[in-house]
Design a protein around this nucleic acid. Structure first.
Lengths: 241, 241
DNA sequence: CTTCAAACGGACCGCGGTCCAGTTTTGTTC
DNA sequence: GAACAAAACTGGACCGCGGTCCGTTTGAAG
């Protein structure tokens, strides 16, 4: 079951994440609107957009990301090449549009999902769960993410990534209020970068569990608390030292 | 004085860094050979290689990295296009060759330079100095580094980056011997990635001093020790509350 | 001088991206 | 509901660049 069907109806960009001026854990105004683009398109444009996304997803499923050529997608969707560019800007835009759905899913999870990822758990637990969630989500879509990362600096300004960063900043403010949380958030997020994950898993052969443990350990060090008891079970922290 | 002159005679790749099976601080066998390539080339090939690098450097100095087109470089060096590709493999290879010199400089500094960057200082001090050195070196060559980063995953396997990672691993083994130092090294190095630096300085307008302070703080947290001097002397009033 | 691996150079290809003339949709007015 | 004008969309020709290929040239060893 590949992401053809549900990716089709997703829009290209997430809505701008409201920057939280509150360092408190107010239920983080969930701004995961449904599909902000899509709607205000002309009928034919919307149809073509859907066909293009579907075609792209099909190409990926059948021949890998490398086969996603703008011309190929256009042809597969029976649409002119210019249309693809008009709709998505460039290849990266198209690929990011394909990622949009899972971006939203993740965002919904940590904004309004069940604890420990969602609100309700202590910030430290949320941070742990957050990193792990990001880790696995990126691992799942690694090829697409790497392919979408032509200009490495562009990813960091993408709304979805900004949302991650903002969320992490909010959590950090509650955990280590005296630190430079914005900077620290970016730093920690960098260690979860798709390129890093790729290098560690594929190149160095590290299993995902090791990366996960590494994240847990890193969070503990940054927070200045001992790591939670066992490696795997996300229990409330028990000061054992 | 741009890097035209001395970059010209540098080779493309650093020699493979010997992986240290010693967790101790043996004087880290300095393997910064002079110019391993270059020598065994045919006379005309070596001459053309030099001319190409010089031409590329000139183009960058005059018109920015974007002007470094393989055709343009070939033309400026009065050489066929095929020659450029034969010599450097691809555009990224050419750009990395231009970075080779400063790669070696940095490597020499932390392998055999004066403390606290070089051997002789306590590992924790070395680690601090190391991060700061990397930070400023990357900042200095940001454009080139970003341009050379077409495939984001390729950078991480580059010998120069591997050398940084290895060195950091060695230091970490001495500082936090019970941690997963390989993983931690990569994690920490990721926070110094050119793309991250670019985003923080250019996009978010953070001054370099702030990044530097962030690194110092991060190291302290990871090492589990309080930061060296005062927490941070020139702190901008940025508790954005 | 002979010989040949190595290096050369430019024609060639595919793809990302631009452009614009022509077409379709939408909303408005009668 | 028909006519119409503006706005939006379409598609394919076109361009530049990265990268490949292959026939030709050249340096150096015997």
């Amino acid at each position: 079951m590949f992401p053809v069907l549900y990716a089709v109806f997703m829009s290209r960009a997430l809505p701008p994440f409201p920057s939280p001026q509150e360092p408190f854990d107010v239920p983080e105004l969930l701004e995961v609107g449904p599909a902000p683009e899509e709607a205000c398109l002309r009928a034919d444009a919307a149809r073509n957009r859907a066909r293009l996304l579907e075609a792209a997803a099909r190409l990926i499923a059948e021949h890998g990301v490398a086969a996603v050529t703008m011309e190929a997608v256009a042809a597969a969707a029976q649409v002119g090449k210019g249309t693809v560019f008009r709709r998505f800007g460039d290849r990266t835009g198209l690929l990011m549009a394909l990622l949009d759905h899972s971006d939203r899913m993740l965002q919904a999870d940590f904004l309004a999902g069940p604890p420990p990822l969602g609100p309700g758990a202590p910030p430290l637990d949320r941070l742990r769960a957050f990193g792990v969630a990001v880790l696995y989500r990126y691992a799942e879509k690694l090829d697409l993410l790497l392919a979408a990362q032509t200009e490495p600096t562009r990813r960091l300004s993408h709304p979805a990534v900004s949302a991650l960063r903002t969320h992490m900043t909010v959590l950090l403010r509650q955990i280590v209020p005296d630190a430079d949380c914005e900077l620290l958030a970016q730093t920690l997020l960098a260690s979860l970068d798709p390129a890093v994950i790729h290098h560690q898993t594929r190149r160095c052969g590290m299993p995902m569990e090791r990366l996960e443990a590494g994240w847990i350990d890193l969070v503990a060090r940054v927070a200045g608390t001992p790591p939670p008891q066992p490696l795997r079970s996300p229990e409330p922290p028990r000061p054992s030292r």
